[in-house]
Design a protein around this nucleic acid. Structure first.
Lengths: 136, 136
DNA sequence: TCAACTGTCCTAGTGTGCTAGGACAGAAGA
DNA sequence: TCTTCTGTCCTAGCACACTAGGACAGTTGA
């Protein structure tokens, strides 16, 4: 569980952390029920104030990705969304549309776009199965 | 060409404009070579300072979406990206990955995700052909 | 030539997002 | 019980993003 912060990226540190935890969870590096690094120790590793890490964890909790227990720690939630299939797809549309619009401006045609999506889905699935092998 | 600003959205006005212009271009409501609303008149319509609109147009120009000519106006570029196919796909990966990660957390499986992507691609293609009929 | 339009540069106020340190409360093990 | 870990609340500073108004330069048509 190694996170890396780019202080010259322009992007807020806490949001970089949020993205990396989400990414780690989606690629199987972090699994349901597993503990995240303690706020203070992670802050020390990253040379960042503990409230910056706390803010990231807070955001992740409000997104339903992790659960924080005062005195115990922070743990990856077993993602059981409270949403119906329809609602979940509606929540996804915004991000899919952004990618579709960008594809249009980059003149990436439909077939190439679908090919890329397929490739990225494969990429994450391979990562998940690889980390399952490592951990068992 | 009607833009709508949500002042309570939390998102900066100029970024809302950027998104809407990109969206309009990708859905055929705005076509290559066509002029965008003049900065001052659009600012007046939206009850916003002209520099706010100018900042949006400036951002769009730096993204290669439009071209601005002092004294003449701002026009939608015929999108000929200077990038190779490989570079364009690399630029897309970030946005695609974000959608894939979100899909994972929303427990939208591969098939449902691909179905949604297909649906959105159809949606934009229908919009393009519809606006072509309207304008010819 | 002149008026009216176009986008742009300069400067400034102001709100707020980001980061940070101190103090506090709950949990766990010696 | 006491120490040490855990996350959280409160407050504050600081920078910067956002917005805004004045002045300027290029273009166009009467």
């Amino acid at each position: 569980m190694v996170f890396q912060i780019d202080f010259k990226a322009g992007k807020p540190v806490y949001l970089q952390l949020v993205d990396q935890v989400r990414y780690a969870a989606a690629s199987g590096m972090l699994r349901a029920g597993e503990p995240l690094p303690a706020i203070r120790s992670l802050a020390e590793d990253l040379r960042v104030n503990r409230n910056t890490v706390a803010k990231a964890y807070d955001e992740l909790e409000s997104q339903g990705v992790i659960e924080n227990f005062p005195g115990k720690g922070c743990f990856l939630k077993d993602n059981k969304t409270p949403f119906t299939k329809q609602v979940r797809q509606k929540l996804l549309i915004k991000e899919v549309d952004e990618a579709v619009v960008t594809a249009h401006h980059l003149q990436v045609d439909r077939d190439a776009f679908l090919e890329l999506v397929d490739e990225r889905l494969d990429f994450f699935e391979r990562k998940i199965s690889a980390s399952e092998k490592n951990k068992t």
